[in-house]
Design a protein around this nucleic acid. Structure first.
Lengths: 143, 143
DNA sequence: TTTGTTGCAAAAATTTTGCATTGTT
DNA sequence: AACAATGCAAAATTTTTGCAACAAA
C-alpha cells in the first residue's frame, strides 16, 4: 500500500524506487516526528546500513512528495513530521519531557484568516506551536 | 536611556558594560528582526570592526536579559527579534518579499489556553507564524 | 543502455569555544 | 588587582554536494 504510493509518486517525477527509499519510508512512517540522525540510528539498529546523506536526501524527497514536513521546535536540528494521511495539525511540545502532541483547531485557523486579512495579507499556511508542561507523567505534572 | 538600562541589567549579573556591547545594542534596537550576520554587516558598514563571535555572544546575552528573542521562520539562520518595550506578539511573514509584520491577537491566545487545557497541558509560551503574500507592493499583491 | 541513486568523504553553513590579550570595575 | 570581555582561529554541529561505482527503468 505505501509501497505502491511511493512508487507511483516517484514515477510521476521519473524517479526510481530503490531498496533504500523503501527502507527509509517504512522507518519514517513508524514515527510521528523524527530527526534525520535519529532515523539513521533506528535503521542502523535494524542492522541495515545506509549513508546519512541518503537519509537526508530521501527525507527531503518525502517532503517534496507531501509525505513529510520540516519543523523546527526551537532546536538546532530539523524534525521531519510524518503527515501521510493526516490533516493539517499543530503541535503541543512539553518543555520537560519533550513529548509532542498533535492537535487541530479550526477556531484558531478562522481567526488567523481574519488577522491576515486585517493586515492585507493572503494567508498561505501557518505554524503554531504551544510550549508548556504536560501532566502525563509524574515528572511532568505542572508545579 | 537604553544605555542606562543595559548598564543596570548587566550590573545585576556582575557583567561589564563595554563599548562593543553598547554598539551592538544600539544597532540591534534599530532593527525589528535581524540575523547575527546582518547585524555584523550593518556595524561593519559604519566602519567599526567587531568580531562576529562578539556579535553572537552579545545577541545571546541580550536574549538572556529579555531584550531579544530568537526566532526561526523556516530559515537556517536564526533571527533575533527585538522585544524591548514590546508586548508579546506573533508574526506575519511574506513568502515573496520577506516582509515581517508583527501582530497581537488576544482571541487566539485565549483559544490556545483552552486547547492546552483540553490536552492536559499547562501552557508556558507559544509561537505562531502566518506565512502568505502581502499586498503592499506591486510584486507582492496576491494573484 | 540510459539515467537516476548511493556512499563516501569533502565542503558548506551557522554558531560556539579556547585562549592569549585587553578593557572595566 | 581582579575579573570579565574581546578577537581570532579552531572546532563543533547540522546539512549539502561532488563524484565514482552501482542499480533501476
Amino acid at each position: 500500500m505505501t509501497e505502491g504510493l511511493l512508487k507511483s509518486q516517484l514515477a510521476k517525477k521519473h524517479l526510481k524506487l530503490t531498496r533504500q527509499r523503501e527502507i527509509i519510508l517504512d522507518a519514517f512512517l513508524k514515527n510521528d516526528h523524527i530527526t534525520a540522525e535519529d532515523l539513521y540510528s533506528q535503521i542502523s539498529n535494524g542492522n541495515i546500513h545506509l549513508g546519512l546523506a541518503t537519509i537526508y536526501r530521501t527525507l527531503n524527497l518525502l517532503c517534496e512528495l507531501g509525505i513529510g514536513q520540516q519543523r523546527h521546535f526551537g532546536d538546532s536540528k530539523v524534525l521531519y513530521d510524518n503527515v501521510l494521511n493526516k490533516k493539517h495539525h499543530d503541535h503541543l511540545i512539553c518543555i520537560q519531557c519533550g513529548k509532542i502532541t498533535e492537535f487541530e483547531c479550526p477556531d484558531i485557523e478562522k481567526i488567523q484568516e481574519e488577522m491576515a486579512e486585517r493586515n492585507c495579507f493572503v494567508l498561505e499556511r501557518h505554524r503554531l506551536e504551544l510550549y508548556g508542561h504536560c501532566k502525563d507523567t509524574e515528572k511532568c505534572h505542572a508545579s
